[in-house]
Design a protein around this nucleic acid. Structure first.
Lengths: 334, 334
DNA sequence: CTGTTAGCGCGTTCAC
DNA sequence: GTGAACGCGCTAACAG
């Protein structure tokens, strides 16, 4: 037996298809009794509205796209679960678009905006990108951005990376450390990746405020993998005069530092204290002292904002910029 | 300016919409010259076929759903990236469906099958489930299953968990270990989760073949988190007579064991050797000796199978069951 | 309040 | 080979 359509429901309830449609879309102008009859018919037939038809006539896809570069980053995954939770509850589909090459991001966005495959987009990208192009292609497309310091024209959710860097460093200083190093991914914000760079700036500011100097030898930058961070940490840890603590721009980088320390037979935190940033799940397992930003919450928030936009046609002024709180999570490594 | 439709293309190329449609769908019966004209028009207008309309009339969504329980597991993510790579290249969308509650899986599947939102489904689930129900609801829905030992009616991709357990244990035995423990998640396959149970069976078989006995005190089962594994490993490692090696059913469990060893001041692998299973990316960073199953490849394969099915209407007999190879990856922990 | 009608953009017949 | 007509299931605008 064919899957039932709105027509079947209408026949069964003894009404016209228009009425069924109204019930489906929560139109207020349907008599209570009629609504009940229709609802019953829907129930009995196990009717599910056809998404494609809905989209074709109404223009809505009930799908939200999530765009992000390589999504193997633990932080991305945690945000994604948050997004999923909310979209799922609202009966929206989540389509995943990955950005393989950063320089193709704009091109991909263009294609996406044209194809009308999604009602809205959640972009998770800490790199700078040209918002204007999206707006030109699709001026009305709801877009929410997570984890980006450079957004101006869309609602976005972010953290104060600078403040986070200060927090972490202050914490280390309070614990008696005077010689502190930094392991990050980029040394400047030249390429548009800004998160860890801001954290690094906060790190420097904190040291300066405490009258401590930044030892450039103790600061290393490079690839965003644990492996690379491990290689980067080694030279710092084998210096004749080495720092007593290292602040890593991401938890994953901190894991690399920990691995290096272990290889060199250094005890953590006695010989070397290590501090991360993000508080991804593994941080808890590995007992890493870190700065928590609530990743899942950022995802949930992003999804809620998109849904709000989709429902109301706009996002409330006060929800436009959300700055999530940061919190030191003291554990075993610092 | 409105996004161009097939009609615009037809006008511009001076043909009927039927012809454009034929070109779009690669129908052979279009004169070469006409085809060129249409292609040119498409190019010039930047025309993209509307997915919803296509689905509504043709029945295809160009979307593949991926269904899986909580997708924070690293192994799932790695498979997912593999799937994404292939689908993306074929211009298919990937929709993520997460199974929040295992007991609702069947219900979710039913809803999915009814709504026709996807052309096919890739199910990543090591637990037993009722394939028949899917087939009853949607007899023609292409479905490919990854990581499941109990599949009968659908193409699937799996590994020989039993053999993997034997491999790992043999390796440890060859390295001189006679006292080997096991940390897994489930003690039996009663609840339908079979992967680690099979690995455990292989473990026992290997020990038996070597004339070694299984010490039940050294085998612990429980929650699937590193945290839980750490708690589970402690009592084993503090036993008066403790094993010299531990084989963990998953890499993540092995990380828990490593953490416990570290807490107790045990040196790895001298005091205690640790072996994992899966070779997720972190295993490399943490230098974990483990058994590799190529996770990304399993995802790619799954996606290719679905696409094959979608294109040809069937999956070749020889591709029906794929058993991926396993390989010992010797690193620092065993 | 409710039934009816006209598209939404495209694939798929048919005739030509 | 190719163009025109119909229908996919639904929403929105229009009569009643």
């Amino acid at each position: 037996m064919r899957t039932p359509t709105i027509k079947d429901v209408a026949d069964r309830a003894g009404v016209g298809i228009g009425t069924v449609s109204r019930v489906l879309n929560g139109s207020p102008q349907v008599r209570q009794e009629t609504r009940q009859r229709v609802l019953a018919a829907i129930q009995e037939l196990g009717f599910k509205p056809n998404t494609a038809a809905r989209q074709l006539s109404g223009g809505r896809t009930f799908t939200v796209g999530v765009v992000s570069p390589i999504f193997t980053l633990p932080s991305f995954i945690e945000r994604l679960t948050g997004i999923q939770d909310i979209l799922d509850a609202a009966n929206y589909d989540l389509v995943l678009y990955s950005i393989r090459y950063v320089d193709q991001f704009q091109r991909q966005l263009r294609a996406l905006a044209k194809q009308n495959r999604v009602d809205g987009l959640i972009i998770i990208l800490s790199m700078h990108f040209y918002e204007d192009e999206i707006r030109q292609i699709s001026p009305t497309l709801p877009v929410v951005v997570i984890d980006n310091d450079t957004i101006e024209h869309y609602p976005h959710i972010m953290i104060d990376n600078y403040e986070g860097g200060r927090l972490a460093t202050n914490y280390l200083i309070e614990r008696g450390h005077h010689a502190i190093g930094f392991v990050g991914d980029v040394r400047s914000d030249a390429f548009g990746f800004t998160s860890t760079y801001r954290r690094y700036e906060g790190f420097r500011a904190s040291l300066a405020a405490a009258g401590l100097e930044v030892n450039e030898e103790w600061c290393r930058f490079g690839d965003l993998s644990e492996e690379a961070a491990r290689h980067r940490a080694r030279p710092i840890l084998t210096l004749p005069r080495r720092p007593t603590a290292i602040f890593a721009g991401y938890d994953t980088l901190a894991f690399g530092v920990l691995a290096a320390a272990q290889e060199l037979g250094l005890r953590v935190p006695d010989d070397i204290a290590v501090m991360g940033f993000d508080d991804i799940q593994t941080a808890n397992y590995l007992n890493l002292t870190t700065v928590r930003q609530n990743l899942a919450e950022s995802g949930r928030l992003g999804a809620r904002l998109i849904l709000e936009w989709l429902r109301n046609g706009y996002v409330d002024e006060k929800d436009w910029v959300t700055r999530l709180p940061l919190e030191i999570i003291p554990r075993a490594t610092a």
